[in-house]
């Protein structure tokens, strides 16, 4: 799963959101690192709808502009859970290796200091 897709699903995991609200939420979640653009967002939304991971919740017209709210489906929730578990497993491995690396470096430094 690519990062924009993961972030869109995460944004919709909290509550149904319309397109612009998804962009804002993703920017907030990533501390401004990721700001989805309309083309990227709607490519992801269209694909996720086709795959049945999200669906339209409701439509509103605000200041004569259409707002379509999207929500996560059961399949979307499962897909996000699988991806989250995968990322967590990878993160755990990375953390463990970094810890071991730091430990090794510390031991080497200590060894160097004693000789």
């Amino acid at each position: 799963m690519r990062e924009p897709t993961f972030l869109v699903l995460t944004a919709l995991a909290e509550e149904p959101r319309h397109g612009y609200a998804v962009i804002e939420d993703v920017a907030t979640m990533t501390g401004g690192r990721v700001r989805l653009r309309a083309g990227t967002l709607y490519a992801a939304l269209d694909r996720l709808r086709v795959e049945g991971l999200i669906e339209v919740d409701r439509e509103e017209v605000v200041q004569s502009r259409l707002r379509r709210y999207y929500r996560l489906t059961g399949a979307g929730e499962q897909s996000l859970a699988v991806e989250t578990a995968r990322l967590r497993a990878q993160t755990t491995i990375a953390e463990r290796r970094l810890r071991a690396r730091r430990l090794r470096a510390r031991r080497l430094n200590l060894g160097g200091a004693t000789t």
Binding site: G19, R65, L66
Partner: peptide, 10 residues
């Protein structure tokens, strides 16, 4: 229409 809304909001 939806994309126009997002683009104009941004």
């Amino acid at each position: 229409d939806e994309m126009i809304g997002v683009l104009m909001s941004g």
